[in-house]
């Protein structure tokens, strides 16, 4: 594994390895000194062409806990001219000796371009590109799901996968990099996936994806689901006629109080509710659902740091074979 650009090209053993190392990293986070010397003297650049404070501070915390030096580069709002900016910035980073680049970009494929164009030879981590992928989000979601699924089954989480787990991903699939990254990774780990969305918010061509497609959230939930992943919906989508109104969207595809209550009528299933944040309370998810014991929203945030530590460690450490020796 040289870069982390997409979960579609992430092998099962690499995915499991990242999750296992992330478990070690969680343990580090519970120590009094939350820092490892693994990346001392190495420089990680957070290259954010798009605002995302949540993701940036998660990567920053991850890098710092590994003792790396962190440079935050925010291209948003600067005068970088389009086209030349990514290449010029990459060459600048190369010149200052970046050992790894974490890139968030509004254009799908920008991290892949950065990794392949020859402008810089450092490992590249995709921190979200356009409507393409957000692989570390999918990894932290998988980490969260694995903790739950191994507990439900009464097995050790380390080394395990998500075989047999039924996961519904609900919302704006068309514009969601989180949905795409989750689909590929969940399938790699053995879960069954149902995508639930208005037909307007499913991409043409998604019919060949390895998942079930549903327009009906209630029917999907009634069929038995172990985890529901709610995606952020942008209210402005109604202006492009993807749906008639926020209220109608919320009624049909929002995780509201009635749907939360309906989960309690399914004995034997301990369904959890995920959301990558930031949430639109009252639109795609009700406050009661977001704050219920089923919600893993805050676990996802803390797991995010551990998973990103694992990714940076694997890509940047000189000898990533022996995490146990840390």
């Amino acid at each position: 594994m040289r870069h982390l650009l997409s979960t579609a090209d992430l092998a099962r053993e690499d995915a499991i390895r990242i999750l296992d190392i992330a478990e070690d990293m969680v343990a580090v986070g519970t120590r009094e000194v939350k820092k490892l010397p693994a990346l001392r003297g190495r420089t990680v650049v957070n290259l954010f062409f798009e605002d995302s404070t949540r993701t940036r501070i998660s990567f920053e915390a991850a890098a710092k806990r590994l003792s790396a030096d962190v440079i935050n580069f925010s291209a948003k709002g600067s005068s970088v001219s389009k086209g030349e900016s990514l290449k010029d910035t990459a060459q600048t980073l190369k010149a200052i000796g970046a050992d790894g680049v974490v890139i968030r970009h509004g254009s799908s494929g920008a991290p892949a371009r950065l990794a392949a164009a020859g402008w810089i030879d450092a490992p590249v981590v995709n921190a979200g590109d356009g409507t393409h992928e957000h692989p570390t989000q999918a990894l932290l979601d998988a980490f969260t799901l694995r903790n739950h699924w191994s507990a439900v089954r009464g097995v050790a989480s380390t080394g395990s996968d998500l075989a047999g787990m039924r996961v519904a991903i609900v919302g704006d699939i068309l514009h969601s990099r989180v949905a795409r990254s989750n689909l590929w990774l969940l399938r790699t780990l053995g879960a069954e996936v149902t995508m639930v969305a208005p037909p307007t918010l499913l991409p043409v061509g998604s019919g060949s994806w390895p998942c079930t497609i549903s327009y009906d959230l209630d029917a999907t939930l009634a069929g038995g689901i172990d985890a529901v992943m709610m995606l952020r919906i942008q209210g402005e989508r109604q202006h492009a006629s993807f749906f008639p109104s926020a209220r109608e969207y919320s009624r049909r595809w929002g995780f509201d109080d009635a749907r939360l209550a309906a989960l309690d009528t399914q004995p034997g299933r301990e369904t959890v509710i995920l959301h990558p944040g930031p949430m639109n309370r009252g639109l795609e998810i009700s406050s009661a659902a977001a704050d219920s014991p089923r919600s893993t929203v805050l676990d996802q945030v803390s797991n995010g740091v551990a998973v990103r530590m694992a990714v940076l460690y694997l890509l940047l450490s000189a000898d990533p074979q022996r995490p146990g020796a840390l």
Binding site: A8, S108, G109, D129, G130, T131, H132, E133, R177, R180, P203, V204, G205, S206, S208, W209
Partner: peptide, 18 residues
């Protein structure tokens, strides 16, 4: 629009040209 709208654009997350 960025590319042909179909199975490949669905995966790549690029706006489709139907």
């Amino acid at each position: 629009a960025q590319m042909n709208e179909g199975e490949v654009s669905a995966v790549l997350g690029l706006a489709g040209w139907p």
